[in-house]
Simulated scan of single mutants.
Amino acid sequence: MNTEKTWEDGDVGKRIGNNLRQFRSNKGISLEALANQIGVSKLTLINIERGEANPTLSVIWKISNGLNIPITALLSIEADVSISRNKDGLKLTSSNEVFVAEPLFHSHGLMEFYRGYLQPQGEYLSEPHRQGVIEFVTVMSGKLTLEVDGNTYQLDEYDSIRFKGDRPHKYVNPSSSITILHFVISYSSL
């Protein structure tokens, strides 16, 4: 019996909406209260819950931080075997489309795995994740300049970095070609 699950574009919006509604209801938070807490309009949240909106990466981060859940909990698929195929996965984009993150896998709310693409000369300012989050980033192709806490780090192909993700951090591609990244986000305590 094959229990493999894959992402299907038509189901993504509905899955996010259903999961958002379920997590919000389980926590006893109204749409209006969540909207006020995370700085996203109530209408936007209504459209997401109905599966009628395609939220940006920033909005999904705000929702997951506001509900205190990993981002992949909003996207969850339960299966014995999951495959994330190149170019077939769900793509979460920044509002200016300079940065694209593809959720790959999650491990029971403890870790999330992503593939990321940063356009040439592109910059992406990530909002702080919730307290205690650690990010691990490996440059798979290209170059990356990462700014964390006023410090700048230069990474080349196959370089990796670990840092506290609960503070603002900025990803910069200083090159003229796309930078491909692999992310692991850990929610375990420090």
Rank of each mutant, 00 (worst) to 15 (best):
M1W: 05
T3S: 15
K5M: 09
T6M: 12
T6C: 07
E8G: 05
D9K: 13
D11C: 04
G13E: 10
I16W: 02
I16G: 01
G17I: 02
G17F: 00
G17R: 01
N18G: 12
L20A: 09
F23V: 11
R24C: 08
I29H: 04
S30V: 10
L31D: 11
A33N: 13
A33D: 14
L34K: 01
V40D: 11
V40N: 10
V40H: 11
S41H: 09
K42L: 13
L43N: 15
L45C: 12
I46E: 10
N47T: 09
E49H: 08
R50D: 09
R50P: 07
P55I: 03
S58I: 12
K62N: 03
N65E: 07
P70G: 05
S76P: 00
I77L: 13
A79T: 12
A79V: 02
D80F: 02
I83D: 06
S84V: 01
K87H: 11
K87Y: 05
D88L: 13
G89P: 02
G89V: 02
K91A: 14
S95N: 15
N96W: 03
V98M: 14
E102D: 01
P103A: 11
F105R: 04
L110N: 12
E112W: 09
E112N: 07
F113V: 06
L118F: 05
L118N: 07
Q119R: 08
Q121I: 03
G122F: 01
G122E: 03
G122K: 00
E123S: 10
E123T: 04
E123I: 07
S126E: 09
E127W: 00
P128Y: 01
V133P: 06
V137T: 09
M140G: 06
M140A: 14
S141I: 08
G142L: 10
G142R: 07
K143C: 09
L144F: 01
T145A: 03
E147S: 02
D149Y: 00
N151Y: 10
Q154E: 08
Q154K: 06
I161L: 07
R162C: 10
K164Q: 12
D166R: 06
K170R: 15
Y171W: 13
V172N: 00
S175K: 03
I178K: 12
H182L: 15
L190M: 11
